[in-house]
């Protein structure tokens, strides 16, 4: 038997949720409907006469090898930056949770990067990784041309992955730390008394108990790397060299705002939205099954 709570006063219930609904309507549904309309028409830059073109925009996108390249690049970026940011955050959280010397300071400063705006992160990393003048240019002193994100696609990809992970690791860190601190000390102490070392305790006790957090962060990080990586790409690589870092969200920006082709950008953002929805759905359907909520 399931107990259901029901409101007798529907008007009151409606009034109570109205502000929230209104927000969602204005900031999500309305733009989405607008984008849908644009995606099926051609929209002149200054507005005005739309022409209905049916599926043409989508056909053009899907037959474009450059678009498929940006899908491929986005997926690589999502996988790399999600794994890197989750792994480093987990490592940092485990260390801080052990209350090593100075852990209070670390707990505080590890979160900072998330508070920095993406373009600022991009600017900092562009300087650090500049092959001629940056911090990393020392590498090129020993092995000329080993590192050059302006010329080598993979270097550029590594650059944006590191920049994005640096930012996201800070976010993940807070969640991991909170989850670690929620694990009863008695469990860890019991394991310690049974003779298991630090690594063993992390592997067999802590990480399994972190599963719900891990899953949550996986979903958030993947979504984030698809839709929120624009600022970093724009400042560091500009999508290049030769489209090696032309992420889907960056391509939407350049086609829409630089190229003033709003319809093509709208069609691409619809595709991106569906892709993110599908990925999230898959994660909930197949990955969440294996998550044990304590």
């Amino acid at each position: 038997m399931q107990r259901r709570a029901a409101f007798d006063n529907l008007w009151l219930a409606g009034a109570l949720i109205a502000p929230q609904l209104l927000l969602v309507l204005v900031f999500f549904y309305w733009p989405t409907v607008q984008a849908l309309y644009w995606a099926f028409s051609t929209q002149p830059p200054f507005g005005g006469a739309n022409q209905w073109v049916g599926w043409q925009n989508f056909e053009q996108i899907f037959s474009d090898s450059v678009y498929w390249n940006s899908v491929r690049v986005s997926i690589i970026f999502a996988i790399l930056s999600t794994s890197l940011s989750i792994a480093t955050a987990l490592l940092m959280a485990l260390m801080v949770d052990r209350q090593l010397a100075g852990h209070r300071v670390y707990r505080f400063i590890y979160f900072w990067p998330y508070a920095i705006a993406a373009p600022a992160v991009g600017l900092a990393f562009r300087f650090i990784f500049a092959p001629d003048a940056g911090f990393v240019s020392a590498v090129n002193q020993f092995a000329p041309n080993l590192w050059n994100p302006a010329l080598k696609g993979w270097d550029a990809m590594i650059l944006i992955v590191i920049a994005n992970s640096w930012k996201m690791a800070a976010y993940n860190f807070i969640f991991f730390l909170a989850a670690l601190q929620a694990i009863p000390r008695t469990l860890i102490e019991a394991a310690a008394m049974d003779g298991s070392g630090v690594l063993r305790r992390a592997r067999d006790v802590q990480i399994p108990l972190l599963q719900p957090t891990l899953f949550f962060l996986l979903v958030i990080n993947i979504t984030e790397s698809f839709v929120d990586s624009f600022g970093i790409v724009d400042i560091t690589t500009g999508g290049g060299p030769a489209r090696a870092t032309d992420l889907m969200v960056f391509k939407i920006y350049s086609d829409g705002f630089k190229g003033l082709d709003y319809s093509m950008a709208a069609a691409q953002s619809i595709v991106l939205m569906l892709l993110v929805v599908a990925l999230t759905f898959i994660q909930f359907r197949y990955v969440e099954r294996r998550v044990h909520y304590a």
Binding site: K152, G239, P241, A242, R243, D246, S254, D255, G259, L260
Partner: peptide
């Protein structure tokens, strides 16, 4: 028309050529 975007396309292809990809 849309010359900004055309410049960007040429640029991307020049990048590919000058970096030896094409």
């Amino acid at each position: 028309g849309n010359f900004t975007q055309i410049r960007a396309e040429i640029r991307a292809e020049l990048e590919a050529a000058f970096t030896g990809k094409k």
